[in-house]
Amino acid sequence: MEVHRLRLLFLTLLLASVLPGCAWFGRGRDAAPEAVAAAEVPTGESREQPIIDPQVERREIKRPQIDTEDFEIGVYGGILSIEDFESNPVYGARLAYHLTEDFFLEATIGQSRAGKTSYETLSGAAELLTDSERDYTYYALSAGWNALPGEVFIGKNRAYNTAFYLVAGIGSTRFAGDDLFTVSGGFGYRILPNDWMAVHFDVRDYVYDTDLLGEKKIVNNLEAHLGLSIFF
């Protein structure tokens, strides 16, 4: 019995000395993650700060300065083919009002001078028209549509606004002493080298009825011209 009591006392003392140490080590393991986490985050820095802070270099962009005025006035010159009366130089002026970016109204006035018919040239003496009757003047009021707006590039660093447009209108032609009701139509190409000026290339057809040569017929007078205009 005495031996059993000694063994029991020895085991009691052994357990009393071992268990507090195990509890201390357990507390140390629980506290370790907090200590590591505290060491990973520097003092005074936010946990939401991004890991990567990219430095993007901004490019300087120049915006196109297109004139916002709606009126356009200009002059032009070219060649007019007067049916039966040769092709002759023509010059004129135009005034346009841009209703929107796509549509515009245009008023034009042009002047040329008719040549001689083949009959006059071959006969040598016969004159179908007097000198003043050979003056050719037309007026037209047209509506236009910018069908294909775009840009043209010259070199690597230059781009100019352009537009391919269609026009149709009505007007009057004074020729051979008569005022003739005229229907006109055609197309053009516009380039804007800067914000207040435009360069035009146009092809027009002026159609009217006439019996000047003894038989009534519809004539087509084709015109091609190059023009320069400004916005105001």
Results as ranks from 00 to 15, higher is better:
Tyr138Pro: 02
Tyr138Leu: 04
Tyr138Met: 01
Tyr138Asn: 05
Tyr138Trp: 11
Tyr139Val: 07
Ala140Lys: 00
Ala140Asn: 10
Ala140Trp: 01
Ala140Leu: 05
Ala140Val: 06
Ala140Pro: 02
Ser142Trp: 00
Ala143Asn: 05
Ala143Val: 15
Ala143Ser: 13
Ala143Tyr: 02
Gly144Ser: 06
Gly144Val: 05
Trp145His: 05
Trp145Gln: 02
Trp145Glu: 03
Trp145Val: 11
Ala147Cys: 06
Ala147Ser: 09
Ala147His: 04
Ala147Gln: 07
Ala147Glu: 03
Ala147Gly: 03
Leu148Gln: 03
Leu148Ile: 10
Pro149Met: 08
Gly150Tyr: 08
Gly150Ala: 09
Gly150Cys: 05
Gly150Leu: 07
Glu151Trp: 14
Glu151Lys: 15
Val152Lys: 11
Val152Gly: 02
Phe153Met: 10
Phe153Cys: 09
Phe153Val: 13
Phe153Trp: 12
Phe153Tyr: 13
Ile154Gln: 09
Ile154Leu: 15
Ile154Val: 15
Ile154Tyr: 15
Gly155Arg: 14
Gly155His: 12
Gly155Ser: 12
Gly155Asn: 12
Gly155Pro: 15
Lys156Met: 10
Asn157Ile: 04
Asn157Leu: 13
Arg158Tyr: 13
Ala159Pro: 00
Ala159Leu: 02
Ala159Cys: 01
Tyr160Phe: 15
Tyr160Ile: 07
Asn161Ala: 11
Asn161Ser: 13
Thr162Cys: 02
Thr162Arg: 05
Ala163Asp: 14
Ala163Trp: 02
Ala163Arg: 08
Ala163His: 05
Ala163Thr: 11
Ala163Gly: 08
Phe164Trp: 10
Phe164Arg: 03
Tyr165Lys: 09
Tyr165Cys: 09
Leu166Arg: 03
Leu166Thr: 07
Leu166Glu: 08
Leu166Ser: 08
Val167Ile: 12
Val167Asn: 10
Val167Phe: 04
Val167Arg: 12
Val167Tyr: 02
Val167Gly: 02
Val167Met: 13
Ala168Val: 12
Ala168Glu: 06
Ala168Ile: 09
